[in-house]
Amino acid sequence: MLETVRFIVFALLLIAGLMIQLTAVLGACRFRFSLNRIHAAGMGDTLGLLLLCLSAIVYEGFSWISLKIVLIVAFFWLTSPVCSHLIGRLVRETDEHFKSEAKEWKP
C-alpha cells in the first residue's frame, strides 16, 4: 500500500517536473526577445529542477544520495537566478533596440 502511494507521488512529481521543463524549452525557443526567454528558461532551472529532484528523493527514500540531491537543488537555486540576473543586465547594456522591445511589452 505504502509502496503504491510512494510510486504514485513519485510519478506525479516526475511528470510535473517534465511538463515544466517542456514549457521552459518551448518558451526559450518560441519567445522572440531575450528577456522573455530568460523568464522561461529560469523557470525550468528552478521549479522544474526542484520537482524532478523531489521525485528522485521520493524514489530513493532517506539516504545519503537524497541528501546529495538536496545539495544539487540548493546549488541550482543559488546560481540559476544569479545567471538570469547577469544575462538580463547584459541584455539591457548591449541590446541596441532595447527601448523599442521593452516598450512593445509594456502592459
Binding site: 543559488l78 546560481t79 544569479v82 540576473h85 547577469l86 543586465r89 547584459l90 547594456e93 548591449t94
Partner: peptide
C-alpha cells in the same frame, strides 16, 4: 565595456560559493 563589474548579487553568490 560590457562586463558588469561590482555586481552586488554576483559578489554575494560568489562569496558564498
Amino acid at each position: 565595456h560590457f562586463e558588469p563589474h561590482h555586481d552586488e548579487v554576483l559578489q554575494c553568490c560568489a562569496r558564498l560559493l
